[in-house]
Write a protein that binds this DNA or RNA. Sequence first.
DNA 1: TTAGTATTTCGTAAAAATACGAAACAAAGA
DNA 2: TCTTTGTTTCGTATTTTTACGAAATACTAA
Lengths: 97, 97
Amino acid sequence: MSNFYNSEQINLARWAKALSHPARVHIMQHLSKQSCCYSGDLAEDLPIARSTLSQHLKELKAAGLIQGEINPPRIKYCINKDNWEIAKKSFKSFMNL
Amino acid sequence: MSNFYNSEQINLARWAKALSHPARVHIMQHLSKQSCCYSGDLAEDLPIARSTLSQHLKELKAAGLIQGEINPPRIKYCINKDNWEIAKKSFKSFMNL
DNA sequence: TTAGTATTTCGTAAAAATACGAAACAAAGA
DNA sequence: TCTTTGTTTCGTATTTTTACGAAATACTAA
């Protein structure tokens, strides 16, 4: 990562990127409403292959917006509340909301 | 565009994508502060080629977040205030801010 | 031990994003 | 008319994203 940009800019871009696909926006909306759910629940909702969904979940996890808790044979995904708050604050200050 | 996602999701993803690169975040911050500027001003700030900067400006313009006004031999870029307000509202409602 | 369930990882293909330098452009000034 | 200035477009290379189906994994239940 170029050391030119400040961390506010880098973080905002990172979070924006995590939200830059409608499927991932959908997932975050779903989790905002009910806080946790299983991958299968989302798979029924979304018009994409399960493996593709899994990739989107992986990206949201890598960005720190969600976390997965193993609950065999399923995996329960929840919002990472701490980071979600931080992300919200970033957007808030960036946009003067 | 798949007709599965609703327009709120599509728009949010579109704006998020526009902000998914630190250079574009930087540009929007710069324009938020002083509302308008020239491509050259940004070029001095940013560690990227002018042609690359031009591409980023083009993307922000395509997303509707900025607009360019020809002011020969320069081009004055300004925030598209109407759309920027709409984008802010989208993020605001998405994030319950 | 075998079968079933929920999910991920792997392999891969196609499309999009990012970046650069060279060339083109359009208007202003000499 | 020629040159300079600020900027974009073009051509191109590299990397990343998005997508799918097949195979692997991990745990449960029969």
